[in-house]
Design a protein around this nucleic acid. Sequence first.
DNA 1: ACTGCTGCGTAC
DNA 2: GACGTACGCAGCAGTG
Length: 940
Amino acid sequence: MNAPRPRLVLIDGSSYLYRAFHALPPLSNDAGEPTGALFGVVNMLRATLKDKPDYVAFVVDAPGKTFRDDLDPQYKANRPPMPDDLRAQVEPMMQVVEALGMPILRVPGVEADDVIGTLAVQAATHGIDVTISTGDKDFAQLVRPHIALVNTMTGSRTDSDEAVIEKFGVRADQIVDYLSLMGDKVDNIIGVDKCGPKTAAKWLDEYGTLDGVMAHADEVKGKLGENLRAVLHRLPLNRELATIRTDVELEQAPTDLALRERHVEDLKVLYARYGFKQALKELEGASGEGGAGDGGDAGGASGSARAGGGATGLRSTAAGYARGSSADDEALDPALAAPGEYETVFTDAQLSAWIAKLRAADEFAFDTETDSLDAMRANLVGMSFAVTPGAACYIPLAHDYPGVPAQLDRAAVLDALRPLFSDASKRKLGQHGKYDLHVLRRHGVDVAGYADDTMLESFVYNATATRHDMDSLARRYLGYETIPYEQVAGKGAKSIPFPQVAIDDASRYAAEDADVTLRLHRVLAAKLAAEPMLQRVYREIEMPLVPVLTRMEATGMKVDGDELRRQSADLSRRMLAAQQKATELAGRTFNLDSPKQLGALLFDELKLPVLVKTPGGAPSTNEEALEAIADQHELPRVILEYRGLAKLRSTYTDKLPEMVNPDTGRVHTSYHQAGAATGRLSSSDPNLQNIPIRTDDGRRIRRAFVAPEGRRIVACDYSQIELRIMAHLSEDAGLLRAFAAGADIHRATAAEVFGKAIDAVSGNERRAAKAINFGLMYGMSAFGLARQLGIGRGEAQDYIALYFDRYPGVREFMERTRQQARERGYVETVFGRRLYLDNIHARNQGLRAGAERAAINAPMQGTAADIIKRAMIDIDGWLAGHRERALMVLQVHDELVFEVEANFVPTLLEEVSGRMAGAAELRVPLVVDSGSGQNWDEAH
DNA sequence: ACTGCTGCGTAC
DNA sequence: GACGTACGCAGCAGTG
């Protein structure tokens, strides 16, 4: 054997201090000095010294700038100052390190990482075995022969390429590229939005290096692909920032770092002072295992209040930007990005002057600032206005902090503004104005003439760009960087409510909102004007829908909270029974909610076969997987039972009662008008578009959506609307005939495909036909159909071939749609709404196939969305004369729900059905089914 | 304590 | 790899 190589341990001091601080409870000594982090670090140091390294260094950052700061002024710009409780532990830590006899390295102008990197490489090339002791994954890039990482907090050791691959999914030489893709929040390195370890590893596996990923960026589909392309230009900089230098000038060589004699007396004093009993005992020659210090106070619970201090709805969501559409490659006008001049209105004279300006204009932009993101609870804190680009004002109304300047009276200001807001001929414009309409309405101001909304302009112009918040739009269409909300109000737990934001800061932020909205409108209105069909979708569908949705949200729906709580109790009881049964069957306890633990139990311990994998490659425990092994063990069935119950309770019966607004006693969902690229609405807080209906337990939840005394719930839904649209678009003779005859479309399809008379179709055949019908609309393959029906792939292929044989128009329609997507880069709905497909020409087969499936689905899903939106606008207009008797309360894609006076039900059914059916003239009739009852379940 | 990702499941 | 569009829950790993 060779002589043992000498060993060098390089300790990443800052990393351990911070990690120990976060990982350990906030311990303190008898004098009340914080000691948690110190305790962690000291234990780590003692463990390190037990192995008796030949050389050792404790490396920490020196204050001052480094080359990374020069590369990127934003580097580490987000870092909050060190918490006081941690700062207090730094000096004691250095004293302990010193007393232990460890050399301390703190090199001005060089980050600790680079000191460690340089020493490690030098030592390794001079016959020394190096261990880097750190909790920071970035160091994985240094792993190579004779350089290993160890994390003594977790006990993990990474000492080979295999170990790096096992941990990160990439080789050590790919780590820098991997980090560049993910970015680093704490260092303020902007990576690819939504790209985490899995995605980064997948891309690097596929394309080898960062350069490879960048070269193939146009093949990556979906939002991730957009996000990747958006930050492409930054990635080389990220690589530089993430690369640990191994060539900096240092005064010390590795061999200068011999461990010195420890200073026992100093250590005794320090250990005693901070209460490290175990360490003290060891020092005094005794030994023993045991208690790791007295527990201090446990970390205090924090409020779970939603992030307050919201401004304009989407405005305050996180940044992150998407590439502009394929339709707007023009250069941006630099004048658009110039800073604005803003005025804060404190006096009546200033207010009068601004009102005069607003009166003189045809159109103005406005925005509200509030103390909550929830429009149904938010209080008005200030308002801003803009009439000409670059000039805006902010009127503070309810800022409240010590020394706050006198502000105008809120009620008086609103009274003065009311005539402007109620004048429908005065065009108002906003960004996500539905939010502001709610706020003003709740403060006694009804807005008429809400004429333009930049979020909706952007959505109609290019729905593929996923973000339509103001910050993203300003960046994309103006080249303008807005002031982030976090900059004025802080972020997360440290954020302050908007009323406490200094008026000066609030003014810059809020006035900018109105100014930028106006600038954006100028740009986007011109773009839309150049596309007459899109212009119509915007003018005739999206804008008129805004007040309709506002009314529906404001109305809300009555929910019987007590009924839901009873259901929760019942579900809990049954969950407990399932859990006990599962424990019995497993022979041990485990967390039924943890797919990881469940997978280990089923597939490792019980050795059940893995028939389904997750997209991440792990054995799946989803419903399909559990069904597949349910005949081999009792446990999977019990898990399925538990899952079903847990889902209902956690998502619905527990949560919905919490969401009842105390002022109205109802739940007020938010509809997101720019939510789904196809033009559908989405619903959140709570999402009322995914309330269960398929199982009996699920459907019970709908019984809690009730009508008040004397009223009924009425539900009207389109029958098979997307298939009817497919018939319309494909003009397939067979499909048109079936719908014209009013046939049960799945049964009719089965009769055609299986060559039988309508009456001879079996239940199973109808089920298969239904799967084909739906599958086709989603672009499903034979493989998918086979899986869905549990049949062979060949058989599934036969069904599909037979289908296309009987309905050749459908095949042609699908080919035509793909063709159009390829030629023009987009597909459109019957009403001209467009969806761009960024990946339709991707070289990557999977991405391209995905884009083709989306292309086939979008015209049908989108046309259905257009139709029901038109119906809603029409119905809302009719309901204007009947507000006391009937309210439109919900939309669920192909269904509208109303709350109606009992004696008005027949009228409403007739009117609504007629207006829904008449919302479009297609080659097939639109059929509407409806029902009524005391609750939403009965109405079906 | 907080964030983001993963796995899963609900709707149309 | 294999079915389109959403929202949201719990677990979990990572994090100065």
